[in-house]
Computed example of a mutant assay.
Amino acid sequence: MTGRSKAHHKLARQVVRMSWNKLNLFTLANKKNFDIESNKTLFQRMWQAKRDTRGYHGPQIKERQWLRMFNPKLPTLNVKIGKNTRAHPNTASLTFSDMERRVDFIVFRSHFASSIWNARQLVLHGKVYLNGKKFRHPSHLVKDGDIVSVKPESVATLSKPEGGGQELKFTPRPYQQAFMFLPEYLEVDYNTCSTVFLRSPLTQPGKTELPSPFSPETHALAYKFYLRRGRSKY
């Protein structure tokens, strides 16, 4: 394990990352206070929620860069089902939804990279294509229908078989199973190592599409923190 990897996954901090690293899985399984303690002041709760959610959603992004992306306009929706009205989760759970349009996020969510840092590295090294053209900008926000693809030999789970041969074979990586889910807004073709970005994440009755280990209530606190800070400089 490299020194940089250790810095991302310090157990004492209990920060969950976008990573298959075994230390991250340990943190995910043993983290305390996924729900913010109610005996803290409102500001303390908002700050902790901001710290936790940002630790997972875009830790490679500087705060000033994130503040330029922050969108305070998140509607509250309700859907009528028969005689009952079933509320969507608090739409503040979509606070970080614009990040999901980033090229590096799509590479990680598609399971082509073992961490968000690995995904960023693949983009910078010219291993990623956007709509068929080599693309080196991990922070670029794609449009609906854009196709992101990765060179098969650079995909984390593909490797050449022992004894030679040109065909790549799928080789599961240790500790990746907990992160092997696909968001509904991505359409992934593992035969071509490509992903179509369909649309922004949505809330649906009883759930939110944005992958996160944190509850909508925690996201709501983080949203309030950033709403207060607005576009102020750090």
Rank of each mutant, 00 (worst) to 15 (best):
P201N: 05
G206T: 10
R231V: 09
R199S: 08
K233V: 14
K207R: 15
P213Y: 09
L202K: 15
T192L: 12
P211H: 09
S232P: 00
R199T: 08
G206N: 10
R229F: 13
T218M: 13
C193P: 03
C193N: 08
L210M: 06
Y190C: 00
K224L: 14
S215N: 10
G230A: 05
S194G: 11
H219K: 03
Q204E: 15
L221F: 05
T218S: 04
R229Q: 13
Y190V: 03
T208Q: 07
P183I: 06
S194R: 04
P211M: 03
T208L: 04
F225L: 12
L186P: 08
S194A: 13
S212P: 10
T218E: 02
P211D: 07
L227A: 12
Y226C: 02
E187T: 06
L198C: 09
P183S: 08
P205L: 07
S215I: 03
S215R: 03
S194W: 04
T218V: 15
L186C: 09
P213Q: 09
K233M: 12
S194F: 04
S194V: 05
P201L: 11
Q204I: 14
L227M: 13
V188S: 02
E187S: 13
S215K: 08
Y223C: 01
R229M: 13
Q204V: 15
G206R: 11
F214M: 05
P201M: 07
P216F: 04
Y190M: 06
K224A: 14
E209F: 06
Y234G: 07
G206Q: 10
H219T: 10
Q204M: 15
L221W: 07
T195W: 01
T195D: 03
Y234C: 05
S200A: 15
Y223T: 02
S212T: 15
L182S: 11
N191M: 08
L198T: 10
F214D: 10
F197K: 01
S215E: 12
F214I: 07
E184A: 12
